[in-house]
């Protein structure tokens, strides 16, 4: 009996260990879907606030669908996928379910990966619904399907990671993280050339825009829908991937560091 654990440990190689934990991450994601998708803060911050933001922008202006479609898509990706993490992490800290998860045979990286996956799927789901609505009204013209698909997948992944990154402070109060999340997200919208093409922005903001992943998401969407854009599609994709890696690594690093403060 005593040797059982040891022998099993050796039989189960690194590869297998990775796959096992990946499966566990999927279970975490499934749990997140069941619990958090319909929680009111998630709904408010992913639909209500971007909707009013958009309304304020459109109101009294005569804007073409050409200009609006990528904006609507970009905003919905940005707000939906990043709204799940900031509720899961403080909530589970408060409910002490995080402690239960950490006692299970799954490392923190994979717990977070599960949460990221949940935000990602949420964003992808909502984006697909919006796309279908656009198609229903026949106002969608796709110029480059490859870029469109990758823009949707990678941007949702990127902003889901951003949501997890924002949840670093080890508080058990979801509204604190919500506040922080708004403090980060709204300014990002204004510096990322969402409502105005980047090259029409003031000089200082144009520099800031280069450091916002949302800039590249919106530009890539414009590119894939055959609208006027600044960067080449491949360049935007590459930058978004770099942002994903940076966000993911930073999130893991700081969450590990703060973990013991959550109990």
């Amino acid at each position: 009996m005593f040797f059982f654990g040891g022998v099993k440990a050796k039989i189960m190689g690194k590869n297998n260990l990775f796959l096992t934990q990946l499966r566990s991450a999927c279970s975490i994601c499934k749990k997140d879907i069941l619990i958090y998708y319909l929680k009111s803060p998630v709904l408010i911050f992913s639909f209500v606030s971007p909707f009013f933001l958009l309304l304020a922008f459109i109101f009294g202006r005569n804007l073409s669908f050409d200009f609006l479609l990528p904006v609507v898509l970009g905003l919905s990706i940005f707000f939906t996928s990043s709204s799940v993490g900031p509720i899961i992490i403080p909530w589970e800290t408060r409910m002490r379910t995080l402690e239960k998860l950490v006692s299970c045979p799954i490392s923190l990286e994979f717990i977070l990966l599960g949460d990221i996956l949940a935000g990602f799927l949420y964003g992808v789901g909502v984006t697909l619904v919006i796309l279908m609505v656009f198609m229903g009204f026949s106002i969608l013209v796709i110029d480059n399907l490859f870029f469109l698909i990758l823009a949707i997948i990678l941007s949702n992944l990127c902003f889901s990671c951003l949501g997890i990154l924002i949840s670093i402070p080890p508080t058990d109060n979801p509204s604190n993280i919500m506040m922080l999340s708004n403090l980060v997200k709204f300014p990002l919208v204004f510096i990322s050339g969402v409502f105005m093409p980047v090259n029409q922005l003031p000089f200082l903001i144009r520099i800031l825009a280069k450091f916002s992943p949302l800039t590249y998401t919106v530009d890539l969407l414009r590119c894939s829908l055959g609208k006027e854009h600044i960067y080449s599609g491949f360049f935007s994709l590459l930058v978004i991937i770099v942002f994903i890696i940076i966000f993911f690594c930073l999130a893991i690093f700081f969450h590990k560091k703060n973990l013991s403060k959550r109990f």
Binding site: M95, R96, P105
Partner: peptide
């Protein structure tokens, strides 16, 4: 069970069941 909880945590944790101090089932 002979497995170090820090260096072999995955395998050590598979050997154990835990009931923490404060009830923390998922209420939803």
């Amino acid at each position: 069970m002979g497995l170090n909880i820090e260096t072999e945590s995955f395998y050590a944790k598979r050997q154990i069941g835990v009931v923490p101090e404060i009830a923390n089932v998922y209420i939803d």
